[in-house]
């Protein structure tokens, strides 16, 4: 119906946050003069953007395929009458929210694993130096 709108809305928020964060990180690196090391949080947030935008785009195509999206206002066929509208909102609240939560959860686990690997890689040379 319109479940893809929930992850798409999340994608808008994460994209704005990622752009602002990337600018802030660049400014901080410029001020401190230190070179960036490892994968920044804004780069990790970009993975979430790609997951959300990509998924939403392909799901929007599926809705277009099934005739649930039209080119005329209100663009969603179910938004034209109140009975279908409440069903659509219910689907957005259940399926759409679950989609956004699932994608975000998978990204969070993946980003945490990458951070842990980076941390371990940074500690290894220090351990080697301590042993020597």
């Amino acid at each position: 119906m319109a479940c893809f709108l929930v992850p798409a809305a999340e994608a808008v928020v994460t994209t704005i946050a990622q752009k602002r964060l990337a600018a802030k990180e660049d400014r901080a690196a410029l001020e401190s003069g230190a070179e960036k090391s490892g994968i920044s949080f804004s780069s990790k947030l970009k993975w979430l953007n790609d997951l959300l935008w990509g998924g939403s785009a392909l799901l929007a195509f599926e809705h277009l395929w099934h005739g649930e999206i039209t080119l005329a206002f209100p663009f969603l066929t179910n938004a034209s009458n109140p009975a279908d509208l409440s069903m659509m909102l219910h689907e957005m609240a259940t399926v759409g929210t679950s989609m956004a939560a699932a994608v975000t959860a998978v990204w969070a686990v993946f980003a945490a694993a990458v951070t842990a690997i980076e941390k371990k890689a940074r500690e290894l040379p220090e351990e080697g130096a301590a042993e020597a």
Partner: peptide, 8 residues
């Protein structure tokens, strides 16, 4: 893009 769509 594909993994995002697959999860959804």
């Amino acid at each position: 893009i594909y993994w995002g769509a697959s999860l959804m």
